[in-house]
Amino acid sequence: MPYTTFTQAQVQDLIQAIDSRGYAVLPNWASPSQLQSLQALVARTVADCGNDYVALSGQQAVQGTPLHEWGTSPDFIDLCRRIVEGVTGERSSDTGITQTLRCLTGSGGRRESLIFHYDSFVLTTILPVCMPTSGERGDLLMVPNRRPIRRSYFANLLDKVRVDNRWVQRRLRSKVTKDDSPFTRIAMQPGYLYLFWGYRSLHTNMPVAEDALRATAVFHYHNVHGSSSLASRLRRSLGAWKDQGLQEDAPQM
């Protein structure tokens, strides 16, 4: 990782960029050799899954790769903590990062696209590993900083329910199709690290052609309502619904 320690001025510059234009960028986060290694990992993973959508969740799933190194890096965790502290005024107690490697291709990749949502974490960072260079590229699309950080989990849940329904999702997709100028659209470059307020920003990815491949490593930091008792009860209820085969009707958290 070329980036190790950051001065306070550099951290403030990142925060200011996210606040003003919706996102910040750290170029060449991954070295050419690291990127090549990750692209080989993606190729193997997608091939093993029949060349369709697949996601690797958690650090153990990518052990022995640069993704595991970054997800456990004290320097990276410290950077995330300082960015979150700079915007919230509070020092996060989170000691780790939640991470996923998403590989969009095939019909499954299209189903996983254009689903607008808010994250549960204040800071979202994305490292593109493979990106189509033409056609349907799967660009990152967002309405930056659309909501504040909610004081209660219930208010956060209401925000998500308002978005996570067929009518609103259909309306948002229709808006994008007709005119995407009200949205911030980011054509991401492999190896660069993109940072934004995932909790505050309504976001999704544009579709990817079935014969193309879009792979991104997503890192989340600071679950705002991670200690909420209501959130814990709902997660237990969701687990029970899934055990009964009712997960399709369960609300998304």
Rank of each mutant, 00 (worst) to 15 (best):
E90G: 05
E85V: 06
V87Q: 09
L101R: 07
R170G: 00
R150L: 10
E90M: 14
T105F: 06
P74K: 03
G89A: 04
I149A: 07
V87A: 05
C130Y: 07
T105Y: 04
N165Q: 07
V143C: 13
H68S: 05
V161D: 09
N165L: 04
I126T: 04
V161G: 06
R171I: 01
S107V: 08
K160S: 13
P74E: 05
L127F: 05
D139E: 13
R173D: 09
R102Q: 13
D78A: 14
S93N: 12
T124K: 11
L172V: 03
I77A: 12
Q169T: 04
V163A: 02
S92D: 05
F121G: 09
D78H: 10
T105I: 10
N156M: 08
F116P: 04
V168D: 01
L141M: 15
L79K: 03
S152A: 10
A155S: 15
D75K: 06
V87F: 06
W167G: 03
L172C: 04
R162I: 02
V176Q: 09
R173M: 12
E69Q: 10
L104N: 12
P132L: 08
P132R: 11
F116N: 03
H68R: 08
E90Q: 15
R81E: 08
L104F: 14
I97N: 00
E69A: 12
G106I: 06
L67Y: 04
T98R: 07
Y153L: 06
R91S: 15
W70K: 02
C103K: 03
R146Q: 15
G109N: 10
R110H: 09
Y118F: 14
Q99P: 00
P132F: 07
W167P: 00
C103R: 01
M131W: 06
T95H: 11
D159T: 02
D159A: 00
R146S: 15
F121Q: 11
L158Q: 12
Q99E: 05
N156H: 14
V122M: 08
V84A: 08
T125E: 02
R146W: 14
L158R: 13
F116V: 05
Q169G: 02
G109K: 01
D139H: 10
T124I: 09
G109S: 11
Y118D: 02
T100V: 13
R150T: 13
T105A: 11
V168F: 06
I126K: 00
N145C: 10
G96I: 04
K175E: 13
R173W: 09
I77R: 09
T133I: 12
V122R: 01
F116A: 10
K175A: 11
D78Y: 04
T95K: 12
R151K: 15
L127I: 15
I149D: 06
M131L: 11
M142W: 07
G89E: 01
N156K: 07
D78I: 03
I97L: 02
G86K: 03
I83V: 15
G86I: 04
L140M: 14
S113Y: 03
